[in-house]
C-alpha cells in the first residue's frame, strides 16, 4: 500500500501558471549567474549590475525606459497580418500568426508610439523578437512606414529599435518589398531634415540590416549585439572556416565603421536626448 493516495487523476497546470519560484521576485543573470531581485534588474534597465549583460527585452520595456513616465500614444495598434500567399509549411501561416499572438499578446513583431522623451516629442518604433523571431512582414513594414509618416506630420525625430532575424519568409515577395517601402519613407524623412536614430539590438540581421536598421543618421547599438547581413551559419558554410571571435558583434561593426557608437542601455535615454537636443 502506498503512503499517499492521489485523489485527483492527473494534475494539470496551465503552462503560464507553472512557476518554480513566485514570478517576478528573482532574476538570475544568464551570463554571470548572479542572482538578484527582479526589481533591481528592471531598475537597471534589465542590465546585470554585476557584469553589464544586456538581457533581451521587448517593446514594452523599451517604451518604459524611453518614454517619459511611460506615457505614449500607441500608433496603428490594430494592424495584423493577412495571408497573401496562402503559405503552408508545418502549419498554415495564419495559424502560426494566431499562435504567436496568443503566446505574446502582441499583434505582430513591431509596436510604435508617439510621446515625449526628456520633454521632447518623438516617435519610437520597436520590434518584438518573441513574435516569429521579430521577422519583418507586411505589418512590420506598414507600421514602420506609418510611424515615419507620423514623425513627418509632427515634425519630430524618429527612433527605430531593431531586433529581428530578417524578412518573414512566409510572406515571400511581400516581405522583400517592405525593405523598399521603409527605405522610401526614410528618404522622405531625410529630405525633410528630420533626425532618424537607428538602434540595433541583439540580434539584427538579414533584410532588416539591409534596410532601415543601417540607414540612421545615427546608427547606435547595444553592447554585444549580433549585427550582420548574412547569418553566421551561412557565412561559415560559404567560406568553409570557423568565424573569428567576436565576428558580427556590435563592437566588430563599430570597428568597421558602420556604427556611430555603442550605448549602455542604462545611459541610452540620456544620450539620445542629449544628441537630439544638440540638433534643434
Amino acid at each position: 500500500m502506498s503512503w499517499y493516495k492521489r485523489t485527483e487523476k492527473g494534475i494539470v497546470t496551465p503552462t503560464e501558471e507553472k512557476l518554480e519560484v513566485p514570478d517576478g521576485l528573482w532574476h538570475q543573470c544568464p551570463e554571470c549567474k548572479k542572482i538578484m531581485q527582479a526589481d533591481e534588474h528592471s531598475a537597471s534597465s534589465y542590465v546585470c549590475p554585476a557584469c553589464g549583460y544586456h538581457d533581451r527585452i521587448n517593446s514594452k520595456e523599451y517604451f518604459e525606459i524611453l518614454f517619459d513616465d511611460n506615457a505614449f500614444l500607441e500608433l496603428d495598434e490594430n494592424l495584423s497580418s493577412g495571408d497573401p500567399l496562402k503559405f503552408i509549411d508545418s502549419q498554415p501561416y495564419p495559424a502560426r500568426v494566431a499562435a504567436s499572438q496568443k503566446k505574446t499578446g502582441l499583434k505582430d513583431a513591431v509596436r510604435s508610439g508617439y510621446g515625449k522623451m526628456n520633454g521632447s516629442d518623438v516617435v519610437i518604433a520597436c520590434m518584438d523578437f518573441r513574435f516569429i523571431g521579430g521577422s519583418m512582414g507586411s505589418v512590420v513594414g506598414e507600421k514602420i512606414a506609418r510611424a515615419i509618416d507620423y514623425a513627418r506630420k509632427k515634425k519630430c525625430p524618429f527612433i527605430m529599435i531593431s531586433k529581428s532575424g530578417g524578412a518573414r519568409m512566409m510572406e515571400a515577395g511581400f516581405s522583400l518589398m517592405q525593405m523598399a517601402k521603409t527605405s522610401a519613407k526614410l528618404a522622405l524623412l531625410d529630405k525633410e531634415g528630420l533626425p532618424y536614430i537607428s538602434i540595433l539590438t541583439d540580434p539584427t540581421t538579414g533584410g532588416v540590416t539591409a534596410s532601415y536598421a543601417m540607414l540612421g543618421d545615427f546608427n547606435i547599438a547595444e553592447p554585444g549585439s549580433l549585427i550582420g547581413f548574412a547569418g553566421p551559419r551561412v557565412i561559415r558554410e560559404t567560406i568553409g572556416k570557423d568565424l573569428p571571435e567576436g565576428f558580427q558583434s556590435a563592437e566588430f561593426v563599430l570597428e568597421h565603421g558602420f556604427l556611430d557608437f555603442i550605448v549602455d542601455r542604462r545611459e541610452m535615454k540620456k544620450k539620445l536626448a542629449d544628441l537630439l537636443g544638440m540638433l534643434k
Partner: peptide, 22 residues
C-alpha cells in the same frame, strides 16, 4: 548578395540599404 566574411566587414547590409534609399 555574397554572404562572405569580408562582405560583412565592408557592410553588405549598409551597402544594399543605402542603394534602396538613394
Amino acid at each position: 548578395a555574397f554572404p562572405g566574411l569580408e562582405a560583412e566587414e565592408r557592410g553588405q547590409g549598409e551597402a544594399i540599404a543605402r542603394n534602396l534609399k538613394e
